[in-house]
């Protein structure tokens, strides 16, 4: 076997395996365009006349748009709040490191790694007493807390890449703190900030444990709605697939766009 044949075979194998991994998602998308009857036809049908009927029913004929609205409010506000809280902390830890900074950073990381099941009971009790159960404010506070450590670690790692001479020169010119952050540092890390925001967005969008235990209807996001399909037997596969496809679509796009920074974010900046 010559080298080029081997290379070609490896390429074909790679593409085939990639397709295989993606297949469940593709199948979900295809199912969403089938009629319910075709959706559970056996053997499964690859060729069919596509219909948008399920999409119409799944999105407009149910409460889907309500849940979507909730998810959008929760993800956008919590991402914004995490950035507002996280960026100044990241700045202080990147440019004004003291002896305690390393310890603080590790502590911040450990809060991110705290198992949700280890804090759910008191959070539920506290929320109940404060009237925060099933409110946007309640779930947004939780998601903000979940994403702040991620913002601190990621944004700090991007800030450390800025050549310190630039900052130093500006300080010699006597810029204020606000000018330094807003006019110098942030513009230099816009791609990093965008990637960080996208990751916060993905985590908040996909979260289920807190959402399921702390919200019921008024503030329940899409993940809670989708979980109600756990007993969907046979007849509603197509509508379920339409709702599911619509739900994963924004995150797939965000993840594909932020592919390069995904690794940095997932490892809190440990791997670039």
């Amino acid at each position: 076997m010559t080298r080029s044949t081997r290379e070609r075979l490896l390429t074909m194998l790679t593409l085939f395996l990639s397709f295989l991994m993606f297949f469940p998602i593709l199948w979900m998308v295809l199912t969403s365009f089938k009629t319910e009857q075709v959706a559970f036809a056996f053997p499964p049908r690859l060729i069919f006349t596509p219909t948008l009927e399920n999409w119409r029913i799944a999105l407009v004929g149910t409460d889907y748009l309500n849940f979507l609205g909730n998810t959008l409010i929760i993800t956008f506000v919590s991402t914004l709040a995490a950035l507002i809280l996280g960026v100044p902390a990241a700045y202080a830890m990147a440019f004004y490191a003291t002896k305690r900074t390393d310890g603080s950073l590790l502590w911040v990381m450990s809060t991110r790694m705290l198992p949700p099941a280890g804090v759910i009971v008191p959070i539920y009790v506290i929320f109940q007493r404060l009237g925060l159960l099933d409110t946007f404010l309640g779930i947004i506070i939780i998601y903000t807390g979940m994403n702040v450590p991620l913002v601190i670690w990621m944004v700090r790692s991007f800030m450390l890449d800025i050549p310190f001479e630039i900052i130093e020169a500006a300080r010699m010119d006597g810029v204020t703190l606000w000018q330094e952050i807003a006019r110098m540092v942030l513009p230099l890390i816009v791609p990093g900030l965008a990637a960080t925001a996208l990751l916060c967005f993905i985590f908040a969008w996909n979260e289920f444990f807190f959402a399921f235990n702390l919200t019921t209807k008024t503030a329940a996001p899409l993940s809670v709605y989708i979980s109600s399909f756990k007993t969907a037997e046979g007849l509603f596969w197509a509508k379920m697939s339409a709702a599911a496809t619509a739900t994963v679509f924004p995150v797939l796009i965000a993840g594909w766009v932020a592919q390069r920074q995904l690794v940095t974010g997932l490892t809190m900046g440990a791997v670039k």
Binding site: S18, F19, M21, F22, P24, I25, W27, M28, T31, F40, A41, F42, P44, I202, W205, N206, F208, L222, S223, I226, S227, F229, K230, A232, E233, G234, W237, M240, S241, A244, T247, V248, V251, L252, A254, G255, W256, Q259, L262
Partner: peptide, 27 residues
């Protein structure tokens, strides 16, 4: 891009998808 996609899918969607569409014994 295809290979990273499973990780981006909402875990609850993954569960519903595998339970019903892939692992259902009848269809």
């Amino acid at each position: 891009t295809l290979l990273i996609s499973p990780f981006l899918v909402m875990p609850v969607v993954t569960a519903v998808l595998w339970k019903n569409v892939l692992l259902n014994p009848a269809f």
